[in-house]
Design a protein around this nucleic acid. Structure first.
Lengths: 245, 245
DNA sequence: AGGCGCTTGTGAAGAGGTGCACAAATCGCG
DNA sequence: CGCGATTTGTGCACCTCTTCACAAGCGCCT
């Protein structure tokens, strides 16, 4: 119930694609499922029920089933999901079957750590190039890669066929870097700089701001402190967060 | 500074606190508004319209107004919002009027960068203690702080009145660390380890997984590639993402 | 003083996501 | 071979969040 993409003649739309137009919330959870599935595969599990996988991924089992149903029917009723098959499907949908090359701009405090983070490589991403605007940093070698000057971005990006750009510069430099990335054809950007990037339509930007995460926690901490200050009443009723047990 | 709220008084009871039970989506955006407001204040602006602030924060102006309206009416029709006043209000709601102490566990690649990240201090958080389980790392000094063994967590946490724990350990160690943090009374955790933490009710966990962000971008990249591969038709219609100009 | 333009605050409609509950499907076993 | 146990896939109701559109409010200018 999912194959009818376009009966026309897309000549080349043969095997993989399908492009099921997934809900954004589902897309955001698929990587988590994928991680849980890899963990299950490593411990020898061949199949897993929606309940089991949902637990491992920290979500509701009905939500998980609905998410997976958007990719097609890859489960067996009464049995569960084939771990290996499901991994293949999710990786295919996420476009992880090819190794994607990442360019990292800004090799300061955070960028340095990102350049050395092995969680990228282990999940199919290759950091292909490092850049910085500071001449004193250019030439430094990190994890087997030499830092180049950001002016070389255009040339190197083509050579290495970069598909994702990561910005780890200070905020004032981020927009200029983003513009350069867009100019060389990068259409996906992960931004660690605490600022809003403006990019043309068709370019995806995801932002990670570490301080914001702390501030959100601070709010909840603040709220909890206020509630427990109340003697009785509605203190206990509305605290339900992360999965318990 | 935690005033109670009357269970049955819909009007505005006290002055500052109110605890307006903000929507979660609003809470997540307030820090972004705060950052934009600080930038405006630094450039000499005394007031700002919802349109202006919304632009600076990268959101829709109606959404911004609704978000702010949840805190109360701090704008002036025909004029806009007083930047300084709004900063104070948001900081108050987020519980940033007091400096919160953070314990960072795991001083590996990423933890090292977090320990040196000045974006925390500049936004009201104090990294009060560093921990690691690796004896060879204990004693190392980072940014003026000495790394202690994780077994000292209980004692130090009380001494430094830690209110937020940050986990930057490898995944296998994360759950044990979380348990220890919870045991010493920490009720807010920021988890960088790629795994699901299980914590008792009343403890908030936020997760940041750098690889997941890349995988989400990978999906969109994959989707865009498939769409442009199709000759005609639905290629142009459904690409709308980050703010454009 | 009065009108005019600008901006906020909000009601209402719509879109999207969540979780329940159950029918349909599959396997294992007697 | 049929039955019961198990688990998926999904219709539906609920809920949160988003967005539009506009009345109410405010300051400024004449």
């Amino acid at each position: 119930m999912s194959q009818h993409r376009h009966p026309g003649a897309p000549g080349r739309a043969g095997a993989v694609p399908a492009l099921p137009d997934l809900p954004e919330a589902t897309v955001a959870r698929l990587p988590e499922y994928l991680r849980a599935l890899h963990a299950l595969a490593d411990t020898g599990h061949e199949t897993v029920s929606s309940e089991g996988l949902a637990n491992a991924a920290g979500v509701n089992s009905a939500k998980l089933r609905k998410d997976l149903s958007h990719l097609g029917s890859y489960g067996t009723r009464g049995v569960g999901y084939d771990v290996t098959l499901l991994i293949e499907q999710i990786e295919s949908v996420l476009g992880l079957t090819q190794c994607r090359s990442v360019a990292l701009v800004g090799v300061g405090n955070l960028g340095h750590a990102l350049a050395g983070y092995d969680g990228f490589a282990s999940r199919g991403f290759r950091i292909a190039a490092l850049f910085d605007a500071d001449p004193s940093r250019v030439g430094e070698e990190i994890n087997g890669l030499v830092v180049r000057h950001v002016d070389e971005l255009a040339r190197v990006a083509v050579e290495e066929s970069i598909s994702i750009g990561v910005i780890a510069t200070p905020a004032p430099a981020a927009q200029a870097v983003a513009d350069q990335l867009v100019a060389v054809g990068v259409t996906s950007i992960l931004n660690f700089a605490p600022c809003v990037l403006s990019v043309p339509e068709g370019v995806d930007v995801r932002k990670v701001d570490l301080a914001i995460e702390l501030q959100i926690l601070s709010f909840h901490e603040h709220r909890k402190a206020s509630l427990t200050a109340l003697p009785g009443g509605l203190a206990a009723t509305d605290t339900q967060e992360a999965i318990g047990t």
